[in-house]
Amino acid sequence: MALSLTCPICGLRNGYEFRFGGADKGPRPLEEGLTPAQWCAYAHLNTCVAGVQLEWWNHKDGCGTWFVARRDTRSNREVPKEDVQ
């Protein structure tokens, strides 16, 4: 219960029902011509931001939806859209 998240379908739920899916890095890059460095950036590199980030979550023990949440990594709290600069 260090984390609670709002599933777009099920509402506010215990964070342990969810699975983290990484910071939102945008759609998959094209495969052709993707250099190892570009591939690595998409597959592995993180900014490790201490602050608000957009990220993917899956309601694994619930409805199964993937959704994007805004969370402050310093507090583990969701941040409402209007609070994001």
């Binding site: 699975r19 899916g21 945008g26 759609p27 998959r28 993917w56 899956n58 694994k60 199964g64 993937w66």
Partner: peptide, 12 residues
């Protein structure tokens, strides 16, 4: 598996 399919098609 379902989660995996959904994850990798989430933008589509």
């Amino acid at each position: 598996t379902v989660e995996w399919f959904r994850y990798h098609t989430r933008y589509d």
